[in-house]
Design a binder for these strands. Structure first.
Length: 110
DNA sequence: ACTTTGACGACTG
DNA sequence: GCAGTCGCCAAAG
């Protein structure tokens, strides 16, 4: 059993392209349902090692990528997701019903 | 070594 | 239904 953050990274790397996941969902998949903050930290740590643009928030998706240091991330994220086929509604939210990653049997932690 | 933060979520009141 | 608080782990100050 590795550290929770390790598992989170593993989960993040398994996110299929064209799909989005919420922090809570990633945390849940990683085995720590109440620790979405860990996902946040993990994204900051790994940064470019994980598809951070596919990680969004329940509120309206665009929360992802908005770091207090680089607020421009949200724009980049939206562009990247649209490039992958994810559509944003006028509220700037992603259609979780269609693009929300349905983690069927993805977790295979090594 | 201790305290505070960190792109959030869920529960309780 | 809304607002406030707690939770989780790690890294930086």
């Amino acid at each position: 059993m590795k550290s929770p953050s390790e598992r989170i990274v593993a989960v993040l790397r398994r996110i299929p392209k064209g799909k989005v996941v919420t922090y809570g969902q990633v945390a849940e998949l990683a085995g720590v349902p109440r620790a979405p903050r860990l996902v946040v930290q993990t994204l900051h740590r790994c940064g470019d090692e994980v598809p951070w643009h596919r990680v969004i928030g329940k509120r309206g998706a665009s929360v992802g990528g908005v770091s207090i240091k680089d607020p421009l991330g949200a724009k980049v994220q939206r562009r990247l997701l649209e490039k992958e086929g994810v559509k944003f509604d006028r509220a700037g939210g992603v259609d979780l019903d269609r693009f929300g990653w349905h983690a069927t049997n993805s977790i295979t932690i090594r």
